[in-house]
């Protein structure tokens, strides 16, 4: 399911439906990030530092957006997320395994 990495890319998009790319190196705020999308080499400017392995937003997302990676939903945006922002636990929450939101709790 993972896409193969193209030499020279700074971030990997696994599926064309994805809202995020995964950083292949440490990225500083202000850096221009190269990634491949639908066979095009595209760029996005990082608005935050994005550590290796962390995610950068490729599109603007409203609060409540079901965020996609691997072409599947990985969670829900807890606030609006701009293109170029670091996407992680501060702005995405899991939808599953939420005993804290359970009726039984």
């Amino acid at each position: 399911m993972a896409g193969e990495v193209v030499a020279g890319a700074d971030a990997l998009v696994v599926d064309e439906k994805d809202h995020v790319a995964t950083a292949l190196k440490d990225i500083a705020a202000g850096d221009t990030v190269h990634y491949r999308s639908k066979d095009q080499l595209v760029t996005v400017v990082a608005l935050d530092p994005i550590p290796f392995g962390h995610k950068i937003a490729l599109v603007d997302m409203e609060e409540g957006t079901h965020v996609k990676k691997y072409g599947e939903v990985i969670g829900r945006a807890t606030i609006a997320i701009e293109r170029g922002r670091h996407v992680h636990v501060h702005n995405v929450e899991g939808i599953r395994g939420r005993g804290d939101q359970s009726q039984e709790a």
Binding site: K55, I74, H88, V89, G94, G97
Partner: peptide, 29 residues
Amino acid sequence: NRMGADMRGGNPSPGNIAGGLSTIEEKSL
């Protein structure tokens, strides 16, 4: 659900989260 807690923090673990995994869904996929 019986535990009444968010699984995040237990799984994904603190190390998974430091490594860039945000949710159990992302880890599972």
